[in-house]
Amino acid sequence: MQDYINVKNLSKSYGKKDVLHDISFSVQRGEAFGLLGVNGAGKTTTIECIEGLRKPNKGEITICGIDVFKNLQSVQKVLGVQLQSTALTEMMTAKEAMQLFCSWHKVPYRNDLLERFDMAGEYLNKAYASLSTGRKRRLHLALALCHNPKVLILDEPTAGLDVEGRHALHKELRKLKTDGVSLLIATHDMAEAEVLCDTIAIIKDGRIVRKGNPMELTASASIQSKVIIKTRESCLKTNPLKNIDQPDFLEDEYLSFACVDVAELLLTILTHIKASGDTVVDLRVERASIEDIFLSIAGGEN
């Protein structure tokens, strides 16, 4: 499969501060690649280097085989970008914005995209300043796609959107993937990364500390699953289990045990409950999420 994005040994520093250390990854055709990290981890700098906005101190970046720093204009023909921090002139309408972007990309006016992102009809002639955050985001996404890019970079694509808006946007992004568009998504939203991305890279202090598909990442974690339980007499609280890590005390008398071997833990807990003469009111087993992995990494584990 062809690599649509290829980042090799990317390093960047601002003055004496190193912000990226030897970052390497590739994104294939139709793949969604998620960059996860806390603020200041290096996500934005990585994305800005890929967009050609910043020049790295070291490393190579190609988009569809084109060197970003040698031929940015050609890269911009195959690259669409939707950033969180961008805006349009306040009184420009969605229709005018599409006319503007299409004319610079030398493509016919794309009303189909405005319709697809629900920006036609009543929103078509509304001033940009009067649109809600969600509508602005839809418009920017439509504009980013006006020249049918092969690669789409999205920075926090669903920040500020309501549930309905998120679902609609996720649906569109999945459709783009099936059309062969590669997505590079920088996000804080772990759940979004988990459902949308084929590959996730977690960045910490300018380094990729974990990379893999969501299943691989959760399976490789030292904390694999959680057993959440509530008993009638709260015997697990009054008479704690020995040789097992202390649980987290949740609301409404629930306890949460983290474990690697679910079967062994369940057997131990249920045996203990039976021996105490207690009964189970509620029991759930949850697989570790990307958020758990992220938190364990952010908390210091590498």
Binding site: E51, L53, Q73, Q76, K77, L79, V81, L83, S85, T86, A87, L88, T89, E90, L100, F101, W104, H105, H140, L143, A144
Partner: peptide, 20 residues
């Protein structure tokens, strides 16, 4: 205002020349 609000960067990443 256009620069502060991010219009310039929106144009740049979209391949619209900054000078425009």
């Amino acid at each position: 205002k256009a620069r502060e609000n991010g219009v310039l960067i929106a144009y740049r990443v979209a391949g619209i020349p900054s000078w425009s």
